[in-house]
Design a protein around this nucleic acid. Structure first.
Length: 386
DNA sequence: TTTGAGCCTGCGGC
DNA sequence: AGCCGCAGGCTCA
C-alpha cells in the first residue's frame, strides 16, 4: 500500500468540522476510515484529517498521472488549492456565526454544538446529478447511488486501503441510450431517465460542461432558471445546486424539513397547508431577510442541528454531555460497512437481475437487495424476462 | 396558473 | 408474513 505523505495547513476546527460538513447531506461520496476522510476530486484521491488548529491533507494521483509526472521532472501539486477552493476556506465562518447569532436568537441557541458547518464549493456537474438522485430519498441511499455511478461509469484512479477510487462520471459517459436501463437495474428508479437526459442536455450544449460551470458568474435568477431546464430538476434541486456549487450563498433551498423549521421555530405563517411554489419563494425570502447575504450557509447549520437532535437524544439517555459524541462516529463506521457490503453484492445483483424477474406474493416485482435475499433463500417463483 | 396523482426503492411500523 | 406509508421532489395532465 502506498504511504501517504501528509502536509498541514493552519485551519481552526471552528472554521470547518470535516465530520459535520462531509456528512450533513451536501456531498455524498466521502469515506471515513480511521478518522481519515477520502474522496476523488479533480482526478486524484484527496485525503483529509484535522485537529483543533490544523487541517492535514494528502493525495494520490492516478497511475497514468504518476507516470506522466515522473516523466516531467517538475510536478506541480495543486492539491492544496483544490482543497481550499472545495472547502470555501477564504470565507470566515466564525464571524458569520457571530453575525447570525446577533440577528437571530434561535440561531444562537441552536448553533452551539454545531460549529464548523460551512457550505462546500462543489463541482457543478456532480452536485447537479447528486441532487437529481436526492428526490424522495435519504442520505444513505443517495450515497450508494453516487458510489454506483462512479463504480459503473467513472474512471478508475487508484486503490488505497482496499478501496477502489473512481472519478465521478463525465456527462459523456452517461449520455448513451443504454444508460437509463442500466441505472434502473442499479435501483435508481425513475431518476434513471432524469440522469440520462440531463447528461444528454449537457453534451448537446454548445460548450458542454463549460456552459454549466458558466452559471457561476451569472445572477441567481438566471442561474436558477437555467438549472430548471434540466430534466428532473425542480426549484429545490436548482437551489441546492445554486447554493452548493454556483456561489449563490444567500439561497435557502426549501424542502419539507426546512419548511417545518420555519413554521415551528420561527412561527412563520403562510396560510397554506402545502409547500406550493408561492410558499416556497416566501419562505426563502423570509430566511434571506433574517440572515442576510450568507443565508444559505446559516440554513445548513440549523438543518444539521435539527437532524442532530436525534443523536443528542441518545446522548442524554446515556447521561452524557452533548458534544459531537462517539455515537455519531459509530453510526458512520456502520454506514461505511453497509456501503462496502453493498458494493460486493453489486456484481451478483446485476447478473441475476438480467436473467429473471421475481415477484412478491403481492405481485410486485422485487429488486435490489430484497430480490437478492429471495434468490439466496431459493423460495421464490422465477419468471423469464422477455 | 395551480393542484394532485404517480413515480422507484428501501425501510420501519404494524 | 406481507402490506402500508413515507423519505430532504419532479413531471405531467
Amino acid at each position: 500500500m502506498q504511504q501517504l505523505i501528509w502536509k498541514s495547513v493552519p485551519v481552526p476546527a471552528k472554521e470547518v468540522s470535516l465530520a459535520k460538513v462531509l456528512r450533513c447531506g451536501q456531498a455524498f461520496r466521502w469515506k471515513n476510515i480511521d478518522n481519515v476522510w477520502s474522496c476523488t476530486l479533480k482526478g486524484r484521491v484527496v485525503f483529509l484529517k484535522q485537529d483543533d488548529s490544523n487541517l492535514y491533507y494528502s493525495s494520490l494521483a492516478s497511475i497514468t498521472d504518476q507516470q506522466q509526472q515522473q516523466q516531467q521532472q517538475q510536478q506541480h501539486d495543486d492539491t492544496l488549492a483544490v482543497i481550499k477552493d472545495y472547502l470555501n476556506l477564504e470565507i470566515n465562518l466564525e464571524k458569520l456565526y457571530e453575525l447570525w447569532s446577533s440577528k437571530d436568537p434561535n440561531f444562537q441557541k441552536k448553533s452551539g454544538a454545531f460549529s464548523g458547518i460551512r457550505i462546500l464549493r462543489q463541482d457543478p456537474w456532480e452536485n447537479l446529478v447528486s441532487f437529481i438522485c436526492s428526490t424522495n430519498n435519504n442520505v444513505k441511499r443517495i450515497s450508494q447511488m453516487c458510489d454506483n455511478l462512479c463504480i459503473n461509469f467513472g474512471t478508475y484512479i487508484t486503490t488505497h486501503n482496499d478501496i477502489k477510487y473512481y472519478e465521478f462520471p463525465t456527462p459523456q459517459s452517461l449520455a448513451h441510450e443504454s444508460v437509463e436501463q442500466k441505472l434502473r437495474d442499479l435501483s435508481f428508479g425513475y431518476r434513471a431517465k432524469y440522469i440520462y437526459k440531463t447528461a444528454c442536455q449537457i453534451t448537446n450544449s454548445p460548450n458542454g460542461l463549460a456552459d454549466l460551470v458558466g452559471l457561476r458568474s451569472l445572477d441567481y435568477k438566471t442561474c436558477h432558471t437555467e438549472l430548471l431546464k434540466f430534466t428532473g430538476v425542480g426549484p429545490k434541486v436548482a437551489d441546492c445546486v445554486s447554493l452548493m456549487s454556483m456561489d449563490k450563498h444567500d439561497v435557502v433551498p426549501i424542502d419539507t424539513h426546512v419548511w417545518t423549521i420555519a413554521q415551528r421555530d420561527y412561527k412563520f405563517k403562510t396560510g397554506s397547508k402545502t409547500l406550493n411554489s408561492k410558499v416556497y419563494v416566501q419562505t426563502g425570502d423570509f430566511f434571506r431577510e433574517l440572515w442576510g447575504e450568507y443565508a444559505g450557509w446559516a440554513h445548513s447549520v440549523l438543518f444539521a442541528a435539527d437532524l442532530g437532535d436525534l443523536n443528542n437524544g441518545v446522548n442524554v439517555q446515556d447521561g452524557k454531555a452533548i458534544k459531537n459524541g462517539g455515537n455519531i462516529k459509530k453510526e458512520k463506521v456502520k454506514k461505511e460497512n453497509d456501503t462496502n457490503s453493498d458494493k460486493e453484492n453489486l456484481g451478483i445483483m446485476q447478473q441475476q437481475q438480467e436473467e429473471v424477474i421475481i415477484y412478491s406474493s403481492s405481485g410486485r416485482p422485487l429488486r435490489g437487495k430484497r430480490k437478492l435475499q429471495m434468490i439466496n433463500q431459493g423460495v421464490i417463483k422465477k419468471v423469464k424476462k422477455e
